[in-house]
């Protein structure tokens, strides 16, 4: 009896973590993993969602390789990532550094920066579309009052992507700030004291103490922000609908259009799978690079 009880106690000890992760595993399997496998399956079909599916083999993938709009959307997505990820992280870090000291109303200011993260992207997109509106937007009104002229922010190919990038920075910087704030607060003060005793200036302390110790947070944000920028949809859907022309058509925009506007669910799934592989490849490369860096350190 005694051994059985001990064995059960040991087994229970092993089981507990699984019980804790079970809800997440079940939800992830039901709503992410199985649909993902199903998407791979339907990417081999011509399926309109409402009619019968027709087997195409790799037809959707060969079409993808030759579709200039898919490549255009991919280039747009990369440009968007380049424009928003480093800048968003830099702004987030600057805000975190500024708000990591004692300031009156610090919590209130932090909340203001974080607010767009918790508000629905459709709501922030609508607000951004109003701010940037050519005819009655606040930004153009300010420009005119300052003696400038109106800019067709969302209606010209050269300004539409920058406008969306600015709106994204407004939304994402708050998230980056919170992650950096948490990381900053976990750096032990003694490192700074030691650096000061050794005569390090504030700049040197930042470059040689703060930045290296923010490494894991930077890596996390880099991965999350790149994934986020590859998956951008709602903000663009609301602000420009992928236009003018194709200037703000991103991969997810094109997936949505294929799935629900032209009813090509198979082709949309093939693009979804391609995007999945791309994000996975990016993440693996970054993960390896980060591990190598840690080993060097």
């Amino acid at each position: 009896m005694g051994t059985m009880a001990a064995r059960w106690a040991k087994r229970r000890h092993k089981l507990v973590p699984y019980v804790f992760i079970a809800p997440n595993v079940v939800l992830f399997t039901a709503f992410s993993f199985l649909p993902l496998l199903y998407a791979v399956y339907i990417s081999f079909f011509d399926w309109s969602l409402i009619g019968d599916a027709e087997w195409l083999g790799v037809g959707n993938y060969t079409r993808l390789m030759r579709d200039p709009l898919f490549w255009r959307a991919l280039v747009n997505t990369l440009l968007y990532a380049l424009a928003t990820v480093p800048t968003g992280m830099a702004i987030g870090l600057a805000l975190a550094l500024a708000l990591n000291r004692k300031l009156p109303g610090r919590t209130f200011i932090r909340s203001i920066y974080f607010l767009p993260v918790v508000v629905s992207a459709v709501a922030t997109g609508t607000i951004a579309a109003w701010l940037f509106n050519d005819n009655y937007g606040v930004i153009n009104s300010i420009l005119v009052r300052l003696g400038g002229s109106r800019v067709a922010w969302l209606s010209t190919p050269q300004w539409a992507l920058p406008s969306i990038a600015i709106a994204t920075l407004w939304v994402r910087s708050g998230f980056n700030m919170v992650v950096y704030l948490a990381a900053l607060q976990s750096i032990p003060r003694i490192y700074y004291e030691a650096a000061r005793i050794d005569g390090a200036s504030a700049t040197r302390q930042f470059l040689h103490v703060t930045l290296p110790l923010l490494g894991p947070a930077t890596f996390l944000l880099l991965v999350l922000d790149i994934i986020h920028s590859f998956q951008v949809f709602d903000l663009i859907y609301v602000m420009t609908g992928g236009g003018p022309g194709f200037s703000t058509t991103m991969v997810v925009q094109y997936i949505y259009k294929s799935a629900f506007v032209t009813s090509e669910m198979g082709y949309a799934s093939a693009m979804g799978v391609a995007l999945y592989v791309l994000i996975l490849a990016f993440t693996i490369v970054q993960w390896r690079a980060s591990r190598q860096k840690e080993n060097v350190l």
Partner: peptide
């Protein structure tokens, strides 16, 4: 016509008419 009134835009032309644009 306002540049924001092309096909893919989310502009509401009826609002532009109502406000005299």
């Amino acid at each position: 016509v306002p540049p924001s009134t092309s096909i893919k835009s989310s502009e509401q032309p009826q609002a532009l008419f109502a406000n005299g644009t």
